[in-house]
Nucleic acid binder design. Structure first.
Lengths: 261, 261
DNA sequence: CTGGAGCCTGACCTAAGGTCAAGGTCAACC
DNA sequence: GGTTGACCTTGACCTTAGGTCAGGCTCCAG
């Protein structure tokens, strides 16, 4: 026994594992100390100092490849680099705090996916007596809209808000949602389609497709994807939608046609 | 074009790269969506939802291997798990903040290595007119002491504080530090050694080796390592120390002997 | 019909270590 | 004075969360 700490003692002092110390040696980040007679590494105070400095920088998120150069830099450069590291660290802390907030929203439903305004709308739907499954479907439609055509998202919300101010439309929508359990051939579906189409035609300007959407090359396809989302397993709804669209087209409204659903 | 978003669109919506999405598929964390006629993945709203949920959890530091199970758990378990994730995240944030503070200390000298009390002592040394290199050496001695025999560290500091209250001892110490530039054979070294030893013998109880150190099996070796630290390149200092120790031994004090330097 | 962007798979690379194996060394206890 | 258990050595491979590269298809716009 002579001449310095063993690797285990040095590692314990620096608060790292033995493997980490050896890793730092291999990367040339901390010079290998001298060996004793039996090949053990022996760490002197200068080695410990370097080790702790390296660990501190690495712990602050500095890539190991940079730590060596940083520690070898002159004090002025070192100080400037530390400022930089400090800034990046602060940034990362703020990022983590933001992620934690997002996480907390995730716990309250799927609000992580949508802005507050949309969440408020969904709450309002629930308050108007729409079932949880309808609200879920609407939420998915919102998510899809935001993903596919974000520029019309605000308009989409506005239109929905307007409709909810209209008790008659709310009533028709509820009936439409009930219709999903009907037989696709049920004659009430045609009746309902006529009523809904009439209501929609009553204030046509609300129905206008936004200019932004028109300008997109694949506007129709994207619109169709959103419009027909969720119809896969609800044939009655698909029929209701088709009938409403037919009514609107008959009245001269230009409704996009989705190619293959 | 039909039936859903491409992987690039889905990735952009979720705020991740395409490669990340594919990675999640391979780990089974997000199910593969259906493919279109030419083998492209097509993402529907449910897939987007799952993707964003997964990304949110992963971003919060949940290991990917756990994300799948977590998302598949029932709401009660999910909520409990989220609490856990939230707690771990908070922990990590606090850890990063602590690391940032340590980093800031590193900029002001090497204060990262020592507690405040020791730093204050080093400041006091500087204030008493000791040179920067002497202060550096003392700091290294402190680091070594804390690494090797942490249980005597506080006593070590107390002894040093006591000595600094004694102007005569301060004066002798300064001369001793000047001696490092003398020739090892300089007769003034013997003179100085006698004076220092006399001063030390004047209050012997301060010189007592702490009981804790005595109890350790390899106490002497560790003590020697600290005591003779830094002598390698200062032969005059080595000689001064040796002479002081000889004086003390002659007076009956039990000074440990380091085996091979 | 051609260029460029986007998609497919598969193989390999990265950082910052961790794990395992096979063997040498040290100190302490019986 | 032998044995036990902790500690050290090297080297090879594993891990996480993706990134990069290569070779080939597909899609869309001009």
């Amino acid at each position: 026994m002579a001449g310095g700490l063993t690797i285990g003692q040095a590692a314990a002092f620096a608060g790292v594992t033995i493997k980490t110390v050896r890793h730092y040696h291999r990367l040339g980040l901390v010079a290998e100390p001298e060996r004793d007679g039996s090949g053990y590494r022996r760490y002197r105070s200068a080695d410990l100092l370097r080790l702790v400095q390296a660990r501190t920088l690495a712990g602050a998120g500095v890539p190991l490849a940079e730590v060596g150069d940083l520690l070898d830099a002159d004090p002025v450069q070192f100080s400037a680099a530390l400022d930089d590291v400090d800034r990046r660290l602060t940034e990362r802390i703020e990022d983590l705090i933001a992620r934690r907030d997002t996480l907390r929203r995730l716990d309250q439903g799927d609000r992580a996916l949508l802005p507050d305004r949309a969440c408020a709308l969904l709450d309002r739907l629930a308050g108007l007596g729409f079932g949880a499954d309808y609200v879920d479907t609407q939420r998915e439609a919102m998510v899809l809209t935001r993903a596919l055509i974000p520029e019309i998202f605000d308009g989409f919300l506005s239109r929905l808000e307007g409709w909810l101010d209209d008790p008659e439309f709310v009533e028709l929508t509820k009936q439409g949602w009930d219709a999903r359990s009907w037989d696709p051939g049920d004659p009430r579906i045609e009746e309902l389609a006529a009523a809904v189409a009439g209501r929609l035609l009553a204030d046509l300007e609300r129905l206008e497709m936004p200019a932004e959407l028109r300008r997109r090359p694949d506007a129709d396809a994207r619109y169709g994807l959103i419009d027909h989302h969720g119809e896969d397993h609800e044939p009655a709804l698909a029929r209701l939608n088709a009938l409403i669209e037919a009514h609107l087209r008959a009245a001269g409204v230009d409704v996009p046609r989705a190619q293959h659903r």
